[in-house]
Amino acid sequence: MTVGVLALQGAFVEHEAMLRSIGVDVRQIRLPRDLTGVDRLIIPGGESTTIGKLMVMYDLLVPLRERIAAGMPTWGTCAGAILMSRRILDGRPDQPALQVMDIESRRNAFGSQLDSFEADIDMIGLDAPFRTVFIRAPILQNPGPACQVLASLADGRIVAAREQHMLATSFHPELTSDDRIHRYFLTL
């Protein structure tokens, strides 16, 4: 199995390191041709505006949408979750995105960097709480009927969701040493 990590911008090396430590083959994806032979995809954290623009410039939007629609398991963390959501709130009006998951995202939902935080949260599919890292993070909201909420904050705001083979988290498991969510993704 080869997992592709979208490497246009952001924290893709951290995902690669985590996947390698689990023993999975990893490949960086920058151009459509890199997708050949890739079974799964992670869209990392970074700046969603930057990654979206580079997806458009290098003709990645359509092939990625097609592969994901055809069932390629895909996981977006933070900016990646924003790019997967059907609608982006508080973004740039013309911000390009994949729009493959039936859930909305709200950018910088907690405020500026001063409001970035860590917390232990429970997640469906994991036996014990996960130490989550939120950095200028989005929240997820209004999930469609096919979308299952996997984790929420104490106030009910959604921070992890799954729709069939697609996973979105507004936090960064790749910044921790806990590989449980990476292992969970590999079972989708």
Binding site: L8, G10, A11, T50, I135, R136, L175
Partner: peptide, 10 residues
């Protein structure tokens, strides 16, 4: 340090 990690490649 994590915010800087998110800026990488940019």
């Amino acid at each position: 340090a994590g915010l800087a990690q998110m800026l990488k490649g940019g």
